[in-house]
Amino acid sequence: MADAPVAIGVLQRELLLPQAGGFCSFEGWVRQTNDGRAVSGIDYKAFRPLALTEGQAILEEATARFAICAATAMHRIGYLAVGETAVWIGVAAPHRDAAFGACRFIIDEIKRRVPIWKQEHYEAGETGWVACHDVR
C-alpha cells in the first residue's frame, strides 16, 4: 500500500533471483474514460490492515499454486490522475507459464477480494463509487 508513486525498478530488482528464468509484470493504470464517461482521476481508499493481510494471503496462495520463485504487489492509495500506475504485480519464475499464470491470478484476486474502493472523479465534476466486483 503506497500513498505516493513507487519506483517500479526497485520492486522489480527484488525479484531478480538466480533461480528465476522469467519475469512477468502487470500494471493497472488510471484510464481516461469509464463506461463512456470522461474521468479526470480516481481516489483509492482502503481498509488498510485487512487489505495488507489479504494481499499477503494472495501472494502466499500464488506461491503455493504456481511454480514461481517470488511475487510482489503494490497498490496505490489516494488520488491518482489519468495515466498514473494504480497497481503493480511482479512475478519471477523458472519458466514463463507459471509467471504468466501467477501474475494473472494475483491481479484477479486483488480485484475480487482486497478491501480497496475506487471513487472516480469525472470531468463533469461529479464523483462515483465504481461498482462492483464479486466479493465472495
Partner: peptide, 10 residues
C-alpha cells in the same frame, strides 16, 4: 467492525 462494500481495487 467494518462492513465491506463490493470492492473495486486494481
Amino acid at each position: 467492525v467494518v462492513f465491506i462494500p463490493p470492492v473495486s481495487g486494481g
